[in-house]
Design a binder for these strands. Sequence first.
DNA 1: GTCTATATTCAGATAGAC
DNA 2: GTCTATCTGAATATAGAC
Lengths: 225, 225
Amino acid sequence: MAVKGAKSSISQRRVLDAAARIFRDSGYAGTTMRAVADEAGLQAGSLYYHYKGKDELISAVLDSGVSQVATLVKDALAALPATATGRQRIETAIEAHIAAIIAVGDYTLATRRVFGQVPQAIRTRHMRLRDAYGAFWDQLFEDVRAAGEMRPDADLKLCRLFVLGALNWTAEWYKPGAASIHDIAGTFGTLVLDGLLQPAPQPASRGRARAPRGSDHALLSTAAR
Amino acid sequence: MAVKGAKSSISQRRVLDAAARIFRDSGYAGTTMRAVADEAGLQAGSLYYHYKGKDELISAVLDSGVSQVATLVKDALAALPATATGRQRIETAIEAHIAAIIAVGDYTLATRRVFGQVPQAIRTRHMRLRDAYGAFWDQLFEDVRAAGEMRPDADLKLCRLFVLGALNWTAEWYKPGAASIHDIAGTFGTLVLDGLLQPAPQPASRGRARAPRGSDHALLSTAAR
DNA sequence: GTCTATATTCAGATAGAC
DNA sequence: GTCTATCTGAATATAGAC
């Protein structure tokens, strides 16, 4: 498994961080033990004291990435007051997820890029972790719908895939200098919750237009916290 | 460049299709000329008659993928009547994009997975194509906003990144047996255009609620937080 | 724990026969 | 156009010194 418990634990972590960066840049096959060792300030042979080989290394990177993100997002939601609205819960989850994947960007980008290339056995085992995190979002959406805040006709499974796909993509283009995580989350939250179009009545295009109505929507502030 | 014009052109294409599949499954470094040759029904050495080497091969896969998608989406939009609403145009673009990336799935998945790993020079050159396609979507969004159909406050650049990120992700999980492309596009279109939440007034979560445009009601809940 | 070897395997690319 | 054969470099992983 990913965690070995014993061993030095600090060298262990240094090697894992280095591996995440190299896997991110070079992919699975492109990552050499030499490059990881260099990045960690070691010689190639020394890695084998900490990890049995390349496969155990990538496995640890994969699992560590999701676990960290899942923990950060769940903690953020748990910190909300019990009275939080569905809107607030989803907004919080969106911002926490973006913040998390950027905080552990080396791991999430590495995962994204190598996932299709790692050996089946590793991928299958890792998928359990990912699916559990997806189920967490499914539950969040279903709770909000059960509370009556959500359009009742949406296919929530598809919506979750859509939202997480978009959120994960942020790690690819986010640059510290540009839009802040808070602003990005605000824009995405409004898009996901309220949509792009004017809520004012529009001519319906074909069947699926919802009944328009002149309601007002909350405008997510883009002001700094 | 990717296109050589001369040569056999049919073998050329067979090799390119094979390369897309292998790059998709094995990543950049993990793809061997031998594997591509196998997939194409050739011997390794024979590939070098069609492409100068691995780099020219990945370059061709990259460019061919975006080009095909861009063409399909632009054609779909061009086929709309001039009277089409912004909603219809965005819905059409969404469905066409999803259909396109699935139709050329080997290429788009390969691109997604190897992009971070190809040599800088190739990546930089290829980015011009991708950026041009992104600009096409930016223009679409801006046109719809200029027509007054869109919420005026959205950051359209961010929204475009969000939407394309989510759409591209569909190629990763789409399975022919499950939801149809049309249904997926319908769900995504509604999510992007109308949002997940009930259009009825909801308590604002943070920031201030937007001033109501219409004058037909005054139920403006105070910004709770 | 980390080092310096080194064995073994396999990659990209070329040369020249057919 | 496609083949076989081969050069050359580099990767994983191991062994054993420190």
